[in-house]
Simulated assay, not measured.
Amino acid sequence: MSIDIKHLTSEQQNENTRHIDQQSAIDILKLINIEDSKVSNAVKECMPEISKSVEAIVSSFKVGGRLLYFGAGTSGRLGILDASECPPTYGTNPSQVIGVIAGGPTAIQNAVEGAEDNEDLGKSDVDRFEVNERDVVVGISASGRSPYVIGAMKRALELNATVVGVANNQNSAMRDLASIMIEAVVGPEVVLGSTRMKAGTAQKMILNMMTTASMILSGKVYDNLMVDMQSSNKKLVVRAKRLIEMATGADEETIQQAYEDSGHHVKTAIVMILVGVPVEEATRLLEQADGFVRKAILLANVQV
């Protein structure tokens, strides 16, 4: 792939930040803040495509599929960040949402020379993770032309996976490979080409939206409470019990008992308290309700 970046919006000089090198600290920060404020609107313009990606992810999860992010540099790191936060936040299996970066784990902290430019590496990483037709593969690239990402998307397409592209330039090379193309055009960066800034912020917002909405639609949230979280440290134990309290209004003793009886599973404890059933029945109701707390409660009322 020939390298021509002159036409890319993300590679243009930002006229609003010319001579930023002559500004004071506070004035530099004000300029950055002004530019950052444009990101949300750029993402808003992509809402229909983001919604389609969420629907595809939820459908994938229902048949045992996975969400896999492929990116290089900042884009790869953001994919890994989003994926790594799903298990503690939503109790997902670590294999359900996966972030893959060009160059492997070493590239999370240090640049791996040539990895981003290797299309075959993207293809082989897709094969390494045994991508199949049930999966959703999301390629992330600010420029929309990263060879590694292009390679991953090409191979995923060959394997009949649903392919989503996330870029920050219009009509990118990724468009022809994506079933769903999200192009959040945030304009030139404060510092030319530093796409870890506005482009990276837009990417993080989009990935947050994808997984958050998908988890809500998969029964991981009750009201607006993350009731499938893992209590993996002292702070999270306190949060888990507080979530049970907020969902049920129960007293401390009842919450503690349900929390222990449920094996520290917030969802189950909530159903136990709200329906007034032991752990075995709460577990059965949740299984019957596909993990949705609200549906489990309705089922219990119907069965009474």
Rank of each mutant, 00 (worst) to 15 (best):
S2W: 04
I3A: 12
I5S: 07
S10W: 03
Q12I: 00
Q13A: 13
H19W: 09
Q23Y: 14
L29C: 13
L29T: 05
L29E: 02
L31F: 01
S37Y: 03
S37M: 09
S40K: 14
K44I: 07
E45C: 00
C46S: 11
M47V: 14
K52F: 02
A56Q: 13
S59N: 15
S60L: 12
F61E: 09
G65Y: 12
R66T: 07
L68W: 06
L68G: 02
Y69N: 05
T74E: 07
T74H: 13
S75Q: 07
R77F: 08
G79L: 04
I80T: 11
L81Q: 11
L81V: 11
A83E: 05
A83I: 08
C86G: 00
T89I: 04
G91L: 01
G91K: 03
T92N: 08
S95M: 10
Q96R: 14
I98Y: 06
I101G: 09
I101M: 08
I101T: 13
I101C: 07
A102F: 02
G103E: 12
G103N: 05
A107D: 03
G114P: 09
D120V: 10
G122V: 05
G122T: 09
G122P: 04
S124V: 00
V126K: 04
V126L: 09
R128C: 01
R134N: 15
V137L: 12
A142K: 01
G144K: 07
Y148M: 06
V149K: 01
V149L: 04
A152Q: 07
K154E: 15
T162N: 12
T162L: 01
V166P: 00
N168A: 13
S172G: 13
M174I: 04
D176T: 14
D176R: 13
M181T: 11
I182E: 09
E189N: 07
K198G: 08
A202P: 05
Q203V: 03
I206Y: 12
I206S: 10
L207E: 11
L207K: 05
M209S: 10
S214E: 02
G219Y: 09
K220T: 06
D223K: 15
Q230W: 01
M246H: 12
A247H: 08
I255P: 01
Q256C: 01
D261K: 14
S262Q: 02
G263P: 05
A269V: 03
A269C: 06
A269Y: 09
A269N: 05
A269Q: 08
V271R: 08
I273T: 03
L274N: 13
E281L: 03
R284P: 00
L285Q: 04
Q288F: 01
D290K: 15
F292V: 11
A296H: 02
V302G: 00
Q303P: 00
